[in-house]
């Protein structure tokens, strides 16, 4: 992988050059929270953000997403692939997209997702964990691929890793903005990573997690938590790896309509409902437990369906903590 350096004084020019690719979206602060929004100027960016409410998934599978339009008795497909830049993704979110890729880009390929994925230029950025992050224990704290460029903070600029052919082209076209990486830069890069590694306050012991869950299906801990859980679905809505959606039709006027999909949550009663009225997960207990099995159990050989971003913890109204639940479940087996 090629490393180059972007000195601080060239950052703004570099950022502005990305607009040639398409609209640029980056993290901005809204009240006490962060969100990926269209950004025009560097000053609007919150580069030290912790996590956005909705993950970057929202650009590929939108919260409400038009699939088809019915107009004059004919269906029009809504696939569009306008180029855009996602600036400032954290490593966990890049891993989140890779998990979505496994679902949406495998046969049958999801055309909406694919068109947008192909059209997106992804620029990652380094981060410092807060009290919710546990990506390191899942190995998602560092991205080796899944981005075009990745910026690592240095005292006087950014160490840039180039992760794709497109990334190389951009570096090439803006050659005058970059410098070679010195040994001192590498030292600073390493120092930053060490500091970061020591800053994690939470970890999920991955070892034997799937086996543990195998045995813990009837643990009383699930029940205790199901009493606290509101089944509000917030944890699903904010999760970068949740893949469920609901398809609905909406009338625009008397004779035209759109078919939309929107994020769904397995905490909803209809999520496990099938024809004939059978429900696979009739109670809140079933639904509460299901989410943990979906994240950590169903296919651990392909990696866990959790990247440790901490969103589900930060935005849970009941203050339920993902890692703590799993630890207590494990504890209940002893």
């Amino acid at each position: 992988m090629r490393y180059i350096k972007l000195p601080s004084e060239n950052f703004e020019t570099f950022f502005n050059s990305l607009k040639e690719w398409g609209k640029v979206y980056g993290p901005v602060k809204k009240g006490s929270i962060y969100s990926f929004q269209e950004v025009d100027e560097v000053a609007e960016l919150a580069l030290d953000y912790t996590r956005t409410i909705l993950p970057p998934k929202k650009f590929f599978v939108r919260p409400r997403d038009t699939m088809f339009r019915l107009k004059d008795g004919r269906w029009e497909n809504g696939v569009e692939g306008e180029k855009f830049v996602l600036f400032g993704l954290h490593s966990c979110d890049i891993h989140g997209l890779k998990i979505l890729d496994r679902v949406y880009l495998n046969e049958p390929v999801d055309p909406y997702y694919k068109a947008r994925r192909d059209a997106a230029l992804i620029v990652g950025i380094s981060c410092m964990p807060d009290e919710y992050c546990f990506c390191k224990s899942l190995g998602t704290h560092f991205a080796m691929d899944g981005f075009d460029l990745f910026l690592h903070e240095l005292p006087d600029g950014w160490l840039v890793r180039i992760g794709s052919v497109r990334g190389h082209e951009i570096a090439w076209e803006n050659e005058e903005l970059f410098e070679d990486v010195t040994d001192e830069d590498l030292k600073h890069f390493k120092e930053f990573e060490d500091r970061r590694a020591n800053a994690f306050q939470k970890e999920i012991p991955q070892e034997g997690l799937a086996d543990m869950l195998d045995l813990a299906y009837n643990s009383p801990v699930w029940k205790d938590y199901a009493e606290k859980c509101l089944a509000c679905g917030n944890c699903n809505m904010v999760c970068p790896t949740c893949r469920c959606y609901e398809v609905c039709d909406r009338w625009v006027d008397a004779y035209s309509s759109v078919r939309e999909r929107r994020y769904d949550s397995c905490f909803m009663e209809s999520h496990g409902l099938v024809a004939g009225g059978h429900n696979f997960r009739p109670t809140r207990l079933d639904r509460f437990r299901h989410r943990y099995y979906c994240k950590s159990y169903f296919d651990p050989s392909a990696g866990f369906n959790c990247v440790g971003c901490g969103r589900c913890d930060e935005f849970c109204p009941a203050g339920i903590e993902h890692v703590k639940v799993l630890e207590e479940v494990r504890g209940s087996l002893r």
Partner: peptide
């Protein structure tokens, strides 16, 4: 679904 769902959407 509860109000939270559309709140997050």
């Amino acid at each position: 679904y509860p109000v939270c769902i559309e709140c997050k959407l």
